[in-house]
């Protein structure tokens, strides 16, 4: 029987890893995340590679989805409903918004399922769990890049020139990824505990799309409601995309509200995720 351990004689030798119970809020352990960056890239690469492994059309899906949606929107909202598009041809007006929207929607769907989908990893091996939702957001960037080429072609077709504003596009792209990650962190962690989240997500993205100025212009929103409208983080992103590429819309208080709300959801999402992390393996 070994019960009491003699007091340690060590003075200089510190343990490399200490495992303790987790109480309350914890640090992000970003250095741990950095140490596992190769795994992050490999998981992202795996998802990209597997996604198109057994599809007939392969990567052209990335183009087809926004393109077909654009055609449907152009017919219904552009032609039939005759929605105003700030003087810009309706197809490119909506396509410019569809790109960040679909980046967001796919990333969100993937990341909300990511933890539960990686059940075998989570219960069998250690690595920073944050890698899973992050890796599930990144593959959509490939789709985005492919359909962005189509957008470039359309810009040329409609003779819409690049301006200094276009240089701000990466910032809005970053915002789109951040909002997907922010919502994905919340949903993936919630999904571990409450499996009905998976039924909520498709509806949520559908409603969310109509709450975002994808098919219509943000200028339709009465001026006094604009700041409130900015509470939908994707409003700011989509408005930013149009502002940067098409020169329509305004980057004003509404966009700043969106940015602020993204930061809030992201930070709270990280905190919630880290808090739940310890229980993932026990509950999943």
């Amino acid at each position: 029987m070994k019960k009491n351990i003699a007091p340690s004689t060590r003075t200089t030798n510190e343990p490399l890893i200490t495992i303790k119970p987790q109480h309350g809020w914890v640090s992000l352990e970003l250095n741990d995340l950095w140490r596992y960056r190769e795994l992050l890239f490999l998981l992202t690469w795996r998802d990209i590679k597997v996604r198109y492994a057994q599809t007939v059309l392969g990567a052209s899906w990335a183009v087809l989805q926004p393109l077909l949606t654009m055609i449907i929107f152009s017919v219904i909202f552009g032609q039939l409903a005759n929605l105003p598009s700030d003087g810009i041809p309706y197809p490119i007006f909506t396509f410019t918004a569809l790109l960040p929207w679909q980046l967001f929607a796919f990333s969100l769907t993937n990341s909300s399922q990511s933890l539960v989908g990686s059940q075998n990893l989570v219960s069998k091996v250690y690595f920073p769990r944050l890698i899973i939702p992050i890796a599930s957001v990144l593959p959509s960037l490939v789709d985005f890049a492919i359909s962005f080429l189509v957008l470039l072609g359309m810009l040329a077709y409609y003779h819409i020139p690049f301006t200094v504003r276009s240089l701000t596009l990466p910032l809005f792209l970053l915002l789109a990824i951040m909002s997907a990650l922010a919502a994905g962190l919340w949903l993936s962690a919630l999904n571990v505990k409450y499996r009905d989240i998976r039924y909520v997500v498709p509806f949520m993205t559908l409603f969310w799309q109509y709450a975002t100025p994808v098919a219509y212009s943000a200028s339709l929103i009465p001026e006094e409601w604009r700041l409130l409208y900015g509470l939908n983080p994707m409003t700011g992103v989509v408005e930013g995309f149009r502002w940067a590429l098409l020169g329509s819309g305004r980057v004003d208080g509404m966009v700043w509200v969106s940015i602020a709300i993204i930061v809030v959801i992201l930070i709270s999402g990280l905190a919630y995720f880290k808090r739940m992390e310890a229980a993932f393996a026990d509950v999943i």
């Binding site: 343990p15 495992i19 075998n120 989570v122 069998k124 250690y126």
Partner: peptide
């Protein structure tokens, strides 16, 4: 293997750990 956290007590590991649970 740091897959789950303990409720009490502590573990000190003096070195890089790899676990093969599967």
């Amino acid at each position: 293997s740091r897959i789950t956290k303990p409720t009490r007590g502590r573990v000190e590991l003096y070195g890089r750990v790899a676990s093969l649970l599967e």
